[in-house]
Simulated scan of single mutants.
Amino acid sequence: MPETYTTVLDRIVDGTTAVLLLEADETVVDELTVAVEELPDDGRHEGAVFDATVDRDAGELLEATYREEVERDRRESVRKRFDRLSERLSDEE
């Protein structure tokens, strides 16, 4: 039965296979490997975020929509978290 997930492109193996992490409630619930060509052109890079419709039973990606804005927000959030952590470390020295 098809379900829709927020999906992150974790890595590309040998330039041909994409490893996608399927998330539910901001937690990784599964992993799916697909041919890179199945993904939208603008989202064929590590860290890309998609809304993806997946048939987990069949292990198939049915549809993927690249979410550039969501990816940008996630990267910004990680950068801010890193900056806060590095400030704390400098204060401890």
Rank of each mutant, 00 (worst) to 15 (best):
residue 21 L to S: 14
residue 83 D to I: 01
residue 31 E to K: 13
residue 51 D to C: 02
residue 70 V to R: 05
residue 90 S to L: 07
residue 65 T to E: 00
residue 12 I to E: 07
residue 90 S to N: 05
residue 63 E to V: 08
residue 24 A to S: 13
residue 10 D to Q: 12
residue 50 F to Q: 00
residue 27 T to S: 10
residue 77 S to P: 00
residue 85 L to D: 09
residue 43 G to P: 08
residue 86 S to N: 14
residue 63 E to W: 09
residue 8 V to W: 10
residue 55 D to E: 11
residue 86 S to H: 13
residue 13 V to H: 14
residue 18 A to P: 07
residue 23 E to A: 11
residue 23 E to P: 00
residue 29 V to H: 11
residue 43 G to F: 12
residue 64 A to M: 11
residue 60 E to S: 04
residue 48 A to E: 03
residue 78 V to S: 07
residue 93 E to A: 12
residue 72 R to C: 06
residue 27 T to D: 09
residue 20 L to N: 07
residue 67 R to K: 03
residue 8 V to G: 05
residue 28 V to I: 05
residue 55 D to T: 09
residue 77 S to I: 00
residue 23 E to M: 14
residue 70 V to L: 03
residue 65 T to L: 01
residue 19 V to D: 15
residue 23 E to Q: 14
residue 27 T to Q: 13
residue 75 R to F: 14
residue 9 L to C: 15
residue 71 E to T: 04
residue 69 E to Q: 05
residue 59 G to T: 00
residue 41 D to Q: 11
residue 28 V to S: 04
residue 8 V to M: 12
residue 1 M to W: 05
residue 68 E to R: 12
residue 47 G to I: 08
residue 57 D to A: 13
residue 53 T to S: 12
residue 54 V to S: 00
residue 4 T to G: 00
residue 42 D to C: 05
residue 47 G to E: 12
residue 1 M to G: 10
residue 6 T to G: 01
residue 55 D to S: 12
residue 16 T to K: 05
residue 39 L to Y: 01
residue 64 A to T: 10
residue 8 V to Q: 14
residue 31 E to T: 13
residue 49 V to L: 04
residue 89 L to F: 07
residue 51 D to G: 05
residue 61 L to W: 12
residue 7 T to S: 02
residue 44 R to E: 14
residue 4 T to L: 01
residue 8 V to C: 09
residue 65 T to V: 01
residue 29 V to Y: 12
residue 51 D to Q: 10
residue 10 D to S: 11
residue 6 T to Q: 08
residue 28 V to L: 02
residue 62 L to Q: 15
residue 37 E to H: 01
residue 43 G to V: 11
residue 22 L to I: 04
residue 69 E to T: 03
residue 48 A to S: 07
residue 90 S to R: 07
residue 49 V to A: 05
residue 24 A to G: 05
residue 66 Y to L: 02
residue 71 E to D: 04
residue 1 M to P: 10
residue 80 K to E: 13
residue 79 R to D: 10
residue 20 L to F: 07
residue 63 E to T: 12
residue 23 E to G: 00
residue 9 L to S: 15
residue 2 P to T: 02
residue 19 V to Y: 15
residue 77 S to T: 11
residue 86 S to T: 15
residue 70 V to N: 03
residue 41 D to N: 08
residue 87 E to F: 08
residue 27 T to I: 13
residue 15 G to F: 00
residue 34 V to Y: 04
residue 60 E to P: 04
residue 38 E to R: 08
residue 34 V to I: 09
residue 61 L to M: 14
residue 28 V to Q: 07
